[in-house]
């Protein structure tokens, strides 16, 4: 079947098998391997992308269902060489370790901050509940999103915790 969609601001048309998942379309047909597969049951969230602005687990959706849609993946976040504030936050606040859940986590955070520009810690935690991370214990992911939220509101992000780390002599 022929599908046409916009992926990272570029028009794409392709012939796909009806059973092809959106995540496989992105990874295998378009070579956008930043979107990862972790569980095949829509639980881990590593495959999260934005479909028409809404966070979507791309392993739950067929490529043909995305016909006519606007897709944004992690590769499309940075523009003109400028990182998105969420990407910057993850780098500045050590919001990633192995990096495997990171693209999905970042896309969820982008979706969250579109809906809530000034989330509390609790709202951030609930906002990324559908994305599993096995490395960070989520602590620094929360800090990264707080950083990004402040940046996107035009405010100074809270200082990093290590500036007041306590070491007992």
């Amino acid at each position: 079947m022929q599908v046409s969609m916009t992926v990272n601001r570029r028009a794409v048309t392709a012939d796909v098998e009806p059973r092809m998942l959106l995540v496989h379309f992105l990874r295998e047909e378009l070579g956008l391997t930043g979107t990862h597969i972790g569980c095949e049951t829509s639980y881990c969230g590593a495959c999260t992308v934005l479909v028409d602005g809404r966070t979507t687990k791309s392993c739950t959706m067929l490529a043909v269902q995305a016909d006519g849609a606007e897709i944004l993946t992690v590769e499309g976040l940075a523009q003109d060489g400028q990182l998105h504030p969420v990407q910057e936050g993850f780098w500045e606040r050590h919001g990633l370790q192995c990096g495997y859940c990171t693209p999905g986590m970042i896309m969820s955070a982008v979706g969250l901050l579109q809906e809530n520009a000034n989330p509390t810690e609790d709202e951030i935690r609930h906002g990324i509940e559908g994305n599993l991370c096995r490395c960070t214990g989520y602590h620094n992911i929360v800090r990264a999103i707080e950083y990004a939220a402040a940046k996107m509101r035009g405010e100074e992000p809270p200082p990093p915790e290590w500036e007041h780390e306590e070491v007992i002599a």
């Binding site: 590769e75 990182l83 990407q87 993850f90 990096g99 495997y100």
Partner: peptide
């Protein structure tokens, strides 16, 4: 490590 990983260009 991070610039590649946050851009989705890290190779697994």
């Amino acid at each position: 490590e991070d610039p590649a990983l946050i851009r989705g260009t890290g190779l697994y």
